[in-house]
Structures are given as structure tokens and as C-alpha cells.
Simulated assay, not measured.
Amino acid sequence: MKGAQNEKIKVLVVVWVIGGLITSLFFLMSKQLQQNSNQLFVASKIKNKQENSDNSVNHDELLTLVNYENSLPEN
């Protein structure tokens, strides 16, 4: 009788540990998915800001492009 009861306790402990591991894994995966979702959201906001700023012309002389194709303006 005691042997059967010990076996039941062992099985319950193993099932409890496996359930805890599965639950922990679920929470870790959902947290990772949420972080990925947040990163995509932030990236899309940055991209939208860049696209909006590309459409406007900025006449700041400190931001003048100078290279072999674009010479320095005389003024």
C-alpha cells in the first residue's frame, strides 16, 4: 500500500514540475513575442518619421551636402 502511494506522489511531483516548466516556457515566449512586437512598432514609427522628413526641404547651411558631386556653395 505504501509503495503504491509513493509512486502516486512521485508521478504527481513529476507532473507538477513538467507543468511548471511548460508554464515558464509559455511566459518566456510570450514576453519575447511582445518585445519583438514593440521593436517592430518602434521601427515603423521611425521609418514613418524618416519618410515624412524626406519630403520636406531643409535649408540649414550646416546640413549642406558637400562631396565630389556637390561643391561647396560660394555663399
Rank of each mutant, 00 (worst) to 15 (best):
E51D: 01
L25W: 10
S37R: 15
E69L: 12
V11R: 10
V42T: 06
Q35L: 14
K10R: 14
N52G: 13
L40P: 00
N6M: 15
I22Q: 05
K10Y: 10
L40H: 04
G20Y: 01
V66M: 15
F27T: 04
H59Y: 08
K10F: 15
E7I: 02
G3S: 13
V66H: 14
Q39M: 13
K8Q: 11
N58V: 04
D60I: 02
S44Q: 04
S56A: 14
E51P: 00
V17H: 01
G19K: 04
K10W: 13
V42M: 15
K31L: 15
W16S: 07
Q50M: 10
N6R: 12
G19I: 01
N52R: 14
L65H: 07
S44H: 04
E69P: 00
F41N: 02
S37A: 15
L65E: 01
H59E: 08
F41E: 04
L28T: 02
E61C: 10
V11H: 07
W16E: 09
N70M: 10
K45Q: 12
E61T: 10
K31M: 11
V17M: 11
L33D: 00
N38V: 08
Y68E: 04
I46E: 15
V11G: 04
D54P: 03
S30I: 13
N70G: 02
T23N: 06
E74N: 11
G20I: 03
L65D: 09
N75F: 14
K49S: 06
S56T: 03
A43W: 08
K10A: 15
I22C: 08
I22K: 09
S44D: 11
S30P: 01
N67A: 15
G20D: 03
K2H: 11
L62S: 10
L33H: 05
E51S: 03
G3Y: 09
V17Y: 01
S56H: 08
L72V: 06
V66L: 08
G3D: 07
I46L: 13
N48E: 11
S56P: 01
L12F: 07
N48M: 11
L25V: 10
L62W: 15
N70F: 08
V57N: 03
I18G: 02
I9C: 01
N38I: 12
A43Q: 07
Q50W: 11
N58H: 06
S56R: 11
I46Y: 07
L62M: 06
N48P: 06
Y68Q: 01
E74L: 13
S71L: 12
Q32P: 00
V15H: 09
L65G: 03
D60N: 05
F26V: 07
L40K: 09
E74S: 06
K2N: 15
L25P: 00
S44M: 03
Q35C: 02
K49Q: 13
K8H: 09
V11C: 03
K10M: 07
E51H: 02
S56W: 10
N75S: 13
M1P: 02
W16Q: 05
S71R: 04
I9S: 03
P73A: 14
S44G: 00
E61S: 14
V42L: 12
H59I: 01
V11Q: 15
K47M: 06
E74T: 03
I22S: 08
S53C: 03
L21D: 09
G3K: 09
E74D: 05
Q50Y: 13
L21H: 06
G20E: 05
E7T: 05
V57Q: 05
K47Q: 02
L72H: 06
